[in-house]
């Protein structure tokens, strides 16, 4: 298994406040890395900096493209364009991430047009094929996003991300906004697309049960720092860091009879020498 992404000492602050503090990690091809942490711990800022949706203050992001390694942040927009094909993102909010004034056909066709792929006819076929892949009716193409449910919209978002045949897909809370049953459907879909296309996922989530099910490795973030990294088994069965234990203690037990006993957050944090 070869490495796909290598992040070193990535830092980002907003108005003097450090949000991502010197984060480093590697990501292997065709694996799924979960990023967990409480709200405000900097997960979104981290992944958006990696994607260059926001410019980080310092640090390097190296990506192993089909043509070799690239430092994403030293590329000009023009040089970056071909790499955009390989790295895509699925958003959290299926309402906000689709342009309400475009039909599904236009939304899905746009990436192909930007990258100069195919002609009108072949693009149409590609869109139809993609819709089928994410299990949407082919009549969806002519409709506007408002005509779909949350789960269906998220499928449109997935289709848009995958139509360029990327290798790395960043999912920022991509199932958090959905009902539990729809969540399961979307996760199934993502998993089957992964095995079919050999995708690599960077999977941000705050629901640890989802992470446990879906990811190979986990990165635990706490106020901008990576406090622990390991395989799902290691992290869930033998957490090393107190903050990880705190997070794990907040998962409700699948057994409804067992009483919910979250650890006392404050004492734990004090023990660990962390500040709230």
């Amino acid at each position: 298994m070869s490495q796909l992404l290598s992040v070193t000492d990535l830092c980002k602050s907003f108005a003097g406040e450090s949000v991502v503090k010197s984060v480093s990690f590697e990501l292997n091809e065709s694996s799924t890395l979960g990023i967990v942490g409480e709200s405000g711990s900097g997960k979104t800022t981290l992944v958006r900096s990696i994607l260059r949706a926001i410019e980080p203050d310092s640090g390097t992001v190296r990506y192993n493209s089909r043509e070799g390694w690239h430092d994403l942040h030293s590329l000009s927009p023009k040089e970056l364009l071909p790499l955009r094909r390989e790295i895509q993102m699925i958003f959290q909010d299926p309402f906000a991430s689709l342009n309400p004034r475009m039909t599904v056909q236009t939304i899905l066709e746009e990436p192909l047009i930007i990258h100069g792929i195919g002609d009108k006819e072949s693009r149409k076929q590609q869109v139809a094929k993609m819709l089928e892949k994410v299990q949407l009716d082919s009549s969806s193409a002519s409709r506007f996003p408002h005509a779909f449910s949350g789960g269906q919209r998220q499928r449109i978002g997935i289709a848009r991300a995958l139509i360029l045949e990327p290798r790395l897909v960043v999912c920022d809370e991509s199932v958090s906004a959905l009902d539990v049953s729809v969540q399961a459907q979307i996760l199934d879909l993502l998993a089957s697309l992964q095995s079919e296309l050999g995708l690599t996922y960077l999977f941000v989530a705050h629901d640890l049960r989802v992470v446990r099910e879906f990811c190979d490795d986990v990165l635990v973030m706490y106020s901008g720092n990576v406090v622990e990294r390991g395989s799902v088994e290691e992290i869930f069965n033998n957490p090393q860091h107190d903050y990880t234990r705190l997070l794990l203690s907040a998962i409700p037990s699948p057994d409804p009879d067992e009483k919910l006993q979250p650890l006392d957050r404050k004492s734990l944090l004090l023990d660990a020498g962390l500040t709230v």
Partner: peptide
Amino acid sequence: DFVVAARLIGANDQRVVFRHMLPS
């Protein structure tokens, strides 16, 4: 999000402004 999404699929400034931001 939908503007960020447009940039992430590789849309240039012109496309982002005229196809996504102004119409909305």
